[in-house]
């Protein structure tokens, strides 16, 4: 445990870096993915803003980006990172990459949650004379909120997973800490402290998500 005690400051910074990357990415990818997911739902043939072309293009885009392993994605969006935040290394650059990668995953989760909304309530809203956008934001989204929150919770775990790869480009975080100060020095204490910390973060995230979902679903 000496290794750990010597590196407590690094550990503390790593926790903050991981939390920063995870939470900022969750919010950013959450919003971006929400927009994309709503577009996918709404333009689906037969739905409120049915548009075969937009639906097709978005679907292909999501299907292309989503299966790319994050490490490769991180390398591939270098030019975009430079254009957006001026650098390809560091915590901010990684956060940007995670936000983008996770947005595509979020979009599918949003789409699924919304597709599962009972078409009957959409019909009831149409029968009441509501406009398409009003139905989308006033009925479909609130009706799909429970599954949506659970979906975001699920994504949070994936995002924490991505943050562990930040060390590759000097992003810091618990992943980098575990490798640099742990496994590369054969200091298993450091590795297991990192593992335990990640588990705690994920558990807290899951707990909060479940709580919110239960509140929304009233169960």
């Amino acid at each position: 445990m000496e290794g750990f005690l010597d590196t407590v400051d690094v550990y503390r910074t790593a926790i903050w870096q991981t939390l920063f990357m995870a939470l900022v990415s969750l919010v950013a990818s959450g919003l971006l993915g929400l927009a994309l997911g709503i577009a996918l739902y709404a333009t689906r043939p037969g739905n409120l803003l049915s548009n075969r072309l937009v639906f097709g293009v978005l679907g292909v885009l999501v299907n292309i980006v989503r299966p790319i392993p994050f490490v490769i994605f991180l390398a591939a969006i270098g030019p975009l990172q430079v254009a957006a935040i001026g650098t390809t290394i560091g915590t901010n650059a990684v956060t940007f990459a995670i936000s983008l990668a996770a947005a595509f995953a979020v979009s599918r989760i949003v789409e699924q949650s919304l597709v599962n909304v009972d078409p009957g309530v959409v019909e009831a809203a149409r029968a009441a004379g509501a406009s398409r956008l009003r139905i989308l934001f006033g009925v479909v989204l609130p009706e799909g909120l429970g599954p949506l929150v659970l979906g975001y919770t699920f994504i949070f775990v994936g995002i924490v997973d991505m943050t562990a790869q930040a060390g590759l480009v000097g992003g810091g975080g618990l992943g980098q800490y575990a490798i640099t100060y742990g496994s590369q020095r054969y200091d298993w204490g450091v590795v297991y402290v990192s593992v335990a910390t990640i588990i705690v973060i994920v558990q807290v995230g899951q707990f909060v998500g479940n709580r919110i979902a239960r509140g929304v679903l009233r169960r």
């Binding site: 009972d118 009957g120 309530v121 019909e123 009831a124 809203a125 029968a127 009925v139 609130p142 009706e143």
Partner: peptide, 12 residues
């Protein structure tokens, strides 16, 4: 006005 077999109430 319209009413439905499955009621179609907004659960939210």
């Amino acid at each position: 006005g319209m009413i439905f077999q499955q009621f179609n109430l907004f659960r939210s």
